[in-house]
Design a protein around this nucleic acid. Structure first.
Lengths: 131, 131, 131, 131
DNA sequence: GTGGTCTAGACCACA
DNA sequence: GTGGTCTAGACCACT
């Protein structure tokens, strides 16, 4: 996977960049798009591709390493770790999505929007973004 | 509206308190639960009810004033502003929900979850939270 | 002078209402539009005409009384005082205007606007507002 | 631009410090003295140079950011935003001066001062302050 | 290093 | 009573 398409970040978002990185990598591993042993872009390469500070990438990689999702190999680029939970079954993966869904549902309630309309828009976004 | 039920905050959340306040008030006004001219709880009253520092409330109110949603009345408590976009029609209100839905859709795509499952869970959360 | 035209206030201005009142009365006395012995509107009358709190009017009147520009007459409405400095000569009156001119000049400098243009606009505003 | 000369404040003025900052920065940007991408002094640096509390500076910067004149860069100092209305043509810049001129004109009218005299004094102040 | 958030608490201005 | 301003200072998040 070349650096340019490894992850996408939004520097304008209130969500910190390093967290955007972490969560995207977590999801890609959970989905099985990244498998044990896959090489990931180097800190410098990704930093340049995303135009962010290398330390930001490094911080994200370190946290993913602490989580056990990535492995450092001396002198070589990091790879997806071979251990535990990975490519989880959908029943488990959907739990990673629950917080985002819950937040949207809470907001919909406060806006007093009819459920049907909300679901219609969500379905549309879901279908579009999967295209 | 008494202060105790005006808004709810979650001090544990990474989202700053003042921003939680802003977004809830914004949604309540958009939903028409707060109408032009309605008085809102005083800074001190709400600060005590939520057990936060008055300046935190004041900051949120000031930003809502800059947004044009609240109006200051010298020496008196603030009121919901009497102007433009307010109690918007659902077609417009749903736009306030779009970012949350988009985020959930993006995450679902990265997790490669089937749309049907995602919509099923979302529908459940939406119905529960409206109960 | 009936209350409605005695003074004009701008509740939206950052300048406090009581101060707007004081300064306008000061200027009208300095200009000779109000002379010793002239009756001024009662607190209640003016408060109603301007739709402000009576205490705001009362505060302004009290400060003008302390300044020696107004006089209280028991049971009767206040009048312009008969004492000292009043209907000053233009040479003296223009000093009351100096702060406003200085502020405008300072801002013009910071905006790096050519003096000729600034004077042209000011002349226009001055002529219009005197019409 | 070093912090010491970035802005000047007057702690004795009734105008709040943070507002003095906002208006000066606004004018400097409008005048083109500050251009898109220019770094501004850090909160701490300017706070020390002006001998005020950092939060006072931070408040001013935040409001300028909400206005779209400054941009935040996470972990780095803020810069002048790269967008719309900036270094405006004089025809537009003079509008920023209009309120101050209008106020002076209104006061001159109430003082019943001859326009010629008022303009003479204003011209003098304008020329002096540009020296 | 950068800015952000929050608290505790004083003091002011306004109605 | 209302909100506004400011300080002192802690702690956090980000680069």
């Amino acid at each position: 996977m070349e650096a340019a398409h490894f992850v996408q970040i939004n520097t304008g978002s209130p969500e910190p960049i390093y967290r955007q990185l972490i969560e995207q990598v977590r999801r890609r591993i959970a989905a099985g798009q990244l498998s044990a042993g896959d090489e990931i872009p180097s800190v410098r390469e990704l930093a340049q591709a995303l135009a962010v500070h290398p330390m930001t990438i490094s911080k994200a990689y370190s946290m993913l390493e602490m989580e056990g999702l990535l492995e450092r190999r001396r002198g070589l680029s990091m790879v997806v770790a071979a251990q535990h939970r990975r490519a989880q079954p959908p029943a488990s993966r959907i739990e990673l999505l629950r917080p985002a869904l819950q937040k949207a549902a809470d907001e919909a309630r406060q806006l007093e929007l009819p459920a049907a309309e909300v679901i219609a828009l969500f379905t549309q976004l879901l279908t579009e973004s999967q295209a």
